[in-house]
Simulated scan of single mutants.
Amino acid sequence: MDLVQVILLALVQGITEFLPISSSAHLILPKEVLGWPDQGLGFDVAVHLGSLIAVLSYFRRDIVEITAAWFQSFGRQGATEHSRLGWFIIWGTVPAGLAGLFLHDFIETNLRSMAVIAATTIIFGLLLGWADKTGKRQLQLSDLTLPLVVIIGCCQALAMVPGTSRSGITITAALILGFQRDAAARFSFLLSIPIIALSGGYLALGLLDDSDTDWASIILGAVVAAVSAYFCIYYFLSFINRIGMMPFVVYRLILGGVLVALLAF
């Protein structure tokens, strides 16, 4: 890939990783429309690393508090709101982890077509709009319970299907369950940390036997993805209660329509 392709693809990945609009749907467009080459395994690892750095940096204080409280919960202090959140993140990751372990090869082989991505982009976009319109928006993170977390975690596992959007499906589930928009988004982003780390680590294993790694592109991609993802999280959480989900719903429908048009012509 040349310099422009590296920067643009890293920007796309960094922004779409946390917005409810599906990164896989966007990354297929440069290849199908512009004829760009596949970005390769090394670049995938780089942008995953950049996304992980961004979410860890933004939630650094929360992560420190949650981690400390989680370890302290094994002692005399017992359970606190932060330690429970730590456990909820762990339990919420289990369904997606199991899905990745048992279904990864099947999904990679059978569900990575443009037709699947077009369908999921539209269907889950409509579901997001319905959830935002009908959700009661009364609950905060302190109202999380294990059954609610398991439901959100199972929905996160659906994001393995390209076009679904990991952040989109978890925010949708939380809205349906009655959470406020910012609470739904915050938990979605916190829940993304183990999954991004696990998927990035899995991809990195494939680099061990790759002697042709373009380290300049990898480093640049990681930096651009990290910066763009950080600002994406910041502005999304700043404005989500005011703008709601409908702009993203409309965008998903337009994007899905473009993919359908590409399939037709």
Rank of each mutant, 00 (worst) to 15 (best):
I7F: 04
L11F: 14
V12F: 01
T16G: 05
S23R: 00
L29F: 05
K31T: 15
E32A: 15
D38T: 00
Q39C: 03
V45P: 01
A46P: 06
G50R: 07
L52E: 00
L52H: 00
L52C: 06
V55T: 01
V55C: 09
F59E: 04
F59S: 03
F59K: 07
I66C: 00
T67M: 15
W70A: 15
S73P: 06
F74A: 15
G75D: 09
G78H: 04
T80G: 11
E81G: 13
H82N: 15
H82G: 07
G92E: 10
G92W: 12
V94Q: 09
A96W: 00
L98C: 10
D105E: 13
I107A: 02
R112W: 02
S113N: 05
A115C: 10
A118Q: 09
T120S: 13
T120K: 10
T121G: 04
T121M: 07
I122C: 08
G125E: 06
L126S: 02
D132K: 10
G135N: 07
K136N: 12
Q138S: 11
L139S: 08
L141E: 11
V149D: 08
I151A: 14
I151E: 08
G153E: 06
C155V: 13
A157F: 08
A157W: 06
L158A: 09
M160N: 04
V161E: 02
V161H: 02
R166C: 06
I169Y: 04
A174H: 04
A174W: 04
D182A: 11
A183T: 00
S188V: 01
L190Q: 03
P194E: 03
A197G: 08
S199A: 15
L203I: 03
G206W: 08
L207P: 03
L208E: 08
D209V: 09
D210S: 14
D212A: 14
D214Q: 12
D214I: 10
A216Q: 10
I218V: 11
L220F: 12
G221N: 08
G221Q: 06
A222G: 15
V223I: 15
V227E: 01
S228N: 13
S228I: 08
S228T: 14
Y230K: 05
I233N: 02
F236Q: 02
S238D: 06
S238Y: 12
S238H: 11
M246D: 08
F248D: 00
L255V: 00
G257R: 13
A264W: 14
